[in-house]
């Protein structure tokens, strides 16, 4: 494949696709100094290595990428070479316009046919995944190539196809990341990672879909595995973590019960109160009274 770049604003092919900022293939045959300084990413960038070997800095970490590897850079993350050098080799890339809503949701505009919940789950997994480098993923290279071909050939239906391919890239990378991060042979490890993710963000209204996706499993299998490993359904296990955290907070005098409810992921102080009472026999207020001590 020869080197080429389509850029939003100048390339005619992209006029129907305002969300595609840039795509193309870079072939670099000599080391270029100061060609790739570290910079903060706006939008989302996919890079697929075709040839050579690249040492890149992606979101706080250094990676070495080989042919077949994919790097994904999300909005706000740093990308570049620590020595600002563009090394010898070639890669194809796609840069699309996307922002973050809050800290944990990537906004894709109407062009995407992913549902709202799917986007939330995908965002969660991509943003929690570290590294965002996926090794040996030739399918990603094929999709990037297909996008380029559709844009150049402009056969009937190409608008829908290009957008579907971008969705497909998100799905493929998300699934592959969870698989890469959760080798099937070690559910204990997978579960510890999930446990850590839940604790880090206990105020989030976690769904089983999101939890299953983080563990890299389908819902049914996920439910079954969690049940046999912990004795609880995923949501009930989550309640354990929430109530444990709530108990810790209730024993401190200065945080209001409503704040505790919201901080620990309950919809409301009512919901918190009912769940807490059902489990412990105390209302949060009573529990606090029994455990508060004036010096």
């Amino acid at each position: 494949m020869n080197q080429f770049v389509l850029m939003q604003g100048s390339a005619e092919e992209l006029s129907l696709f305002p969300h595609i900022l840039e795509l193309g293939v870079v072939k670099n045959s000599y080391v270029q100094l100061n060609a790739l300084p570290k910079a903060v990413m706006t939008g989302v960038k996919f890079l697929y290595i075709l040839d050579g070997k690249f040492h890149w800095h992606i979101h706080n970490s250094e990676y070495t990428l080989f042919p077949g590897d994919v790097a994904l850079i999300l909005p706000g993350q740093e990308f570049g070479s620590s020595s600002a050098v563009l090394e010898i080799g070639s890669f194809s890339f796609l840069h699309i316009n996307a922002d973050l809503k809050g800290t944990d949701e990537i906004i894709l505009d109407k062009w995407s046919s992913l549902s709202g919940n799917e986007i939330i789950a995908i965002s969660k997994i991509l943003l929690l995944s570290n590294p965002l480098v996926i090794t040996k993923l030739n399918e990603a290279g094929k999709i990037l190539k297909s996008i380029q071909q559709e844009l150049c050939n402009q056969e009937v239906g190409y608008y829908a196809r290009v957008n579907n391919y971008i969705d497909e890239l998100f799905i493929l990378l998300t699934r592959q990341l969870t698989r890469q991060n959760n080798p099937g042979r070690d559910f204990h490890k997978t579960f510890m990672k999930l446990d850590e993710a839940l604790r880090k963000d206990i105020s989030h209204q976690w769904t089983v879909d999101e939890m299953a996706a983080l563990a890299g499993l389908g819902n049914t299998l996920f439910n079954e595995k969690v049940k046999s490993y912990t004795g609880f359904t995923p949501l009930n296990y989550l309640i354990n973590i929430r109530i444990s955290e709530a108990i810790r907070l209730l024993k401190k005098p200065h945080i209001s019960i409503t704040d505790i409810a919201l901080d620990t992921g309950f919809y409301s102080s009512q919901h918190f109160s009912t769940t807490f009472k059902k489990l412990t026999g105390f209302t949060p207020g009573e529990f606090r009274k029994n455990n508060s001590f004036t010096e």
């Binding site: 609880f232 009930n236 309640i239 354990n240 109530i243 444990s244 108990i247 489990l279």
Partner: peptide
Amino acid sequence: QDPEQIFITMLYVFK
């Protein structure tokens, strides 16, 4: 280990 989680897990399973 978190003593609160151990306690609440015990209580939940017991119940």
